[in-house]
Nucleic acid binder design. Structure first.
Lengths: 182, 182
DNA sequence: TAAACCATGTAACCCGTTACATGATTAT
DNA sequence: ATAATCATGTAACGGGTTACATGGTTTA
């Protein structure tokens, strides 16, 4: 958990190019952004209300169909300033992994334990799924090289995530093979 | 955040070979274990009390010096069973990165933005620090190859963490060089 | 004797998840 | 018609951090 209310800055960032509703933000988190940050609508709506009260966001209402109200939020000058400041603020220090595979391996600690190969299989499987998912996303978004240029940051972090998964899978398979045969 | 009360299992794991006090657990998190999992004493003590109430832990009191009371906890049979079950339970699915460098890069998104090289410098710096820290730890613990065999899991995850940091640093430096000169 | 460390707890608060709750619109 | 999706909220709870609070022991 980033305790520094990062959600607020992500929202500011997502609103920095165009106005959006809370629902739009929610959809972002279900789509591409969700690979890097996500929150539920039950956290998004109250947060945006608070940000409006604090003068970081402005809103206008619009009607779709007969009565469905949408609330479009946009950045105020204070909101823009808040975002700029955060973007320039130093990064936090690196926090513990808190990854269940890692901690289980630490606690079992014995290469001959029969639970070790199972653990590796599970870990390999979930990273394969994740790797495939990210690769799919890449194809969707960045098959066109022009898109890669238009969205430098996004392409970069997605590429990096894919490489990381590939490297992790290679490491896992290597260590899996080295396990003592029972 | 692992929402599944992982702390409880980490505590069970740390108690599985010898009895310890809450303070001992806290010290573990400040030392080697802390690279992979950590919690504060204000969370540890109440959690251990609850685990005792639930019959997972047993405790005995001891006096150091004239009156300083220590409370040593150990696993009950129920506690051992709980730990075994968790160790065999399937791993959770992979969660979003929630890393501030990543999300900032996503939000800036423009290779020509002057904040990008600064961001890279910050990221490189904090990973260098972390890499050095982990390498130090390795020297401390695993210079002796026999220790590496005695603590297979620990050696493995530490090695993996070091490799990951090294690979990440290489990637960061490569991309930093590719940035457009201003 | 003073500082650092040992040792154990509680309280307030923040972030995030799950569940509760409601109603409109669109596509089949 | 009905299911899926759009749209916006609130409530309860769990896990984690910071701060509050207290006292004993060891080491320089």
């Amino acid at each position: 958990m980033s305790r520094e209310n990062t959600l607020r800055y992500v929202i500011l960032g997502l609103l920095s190019h165009k106005e959006r509703t809370g629902y739009d933000i929610k959809k972002c988190f279900q789509q591409e952004v969700g690979d890097f940050w996500s929150s539920r609508h039950s956290q998004i709506y109250p947060e945006m209300l608070k940000m409006e009260e604090q003068g970081l966001l402005a809103s206008r209402k619009a009607i779709t169909g007969q009565k469905l109200e949408k609330k479009y939020y946009s950045l105020t000058d204070a909101g823009k300033k808040e975002l700029e400041e955060w973007l320039q603020a130093p990064l936090g220090s690196i926090v513990p992994t808190r990854d269940d595979f890692t901690i289980k391996l630490y606690l079992i600690d014995d290469a001959a334990d029969p639970r070790i190969p199972i653990l590796f299989q599970q870990e390999i499987s979930r990273h394969q799924i994740h790797h495939r998912h990210l690769t799919e996303r890449w194809k969707e978004l960045f098959t066109d090289p022009e898109e890669r240029e238009r969205h430098y940051g996004h392409a970069l972090i997605l590429r990096q995530a894919i490489d990381r998964e590939a490297q992790r899978l290679a490491w896992l398979k290597k260590e899996y093979k080295k396990l003592p045969k029972k």
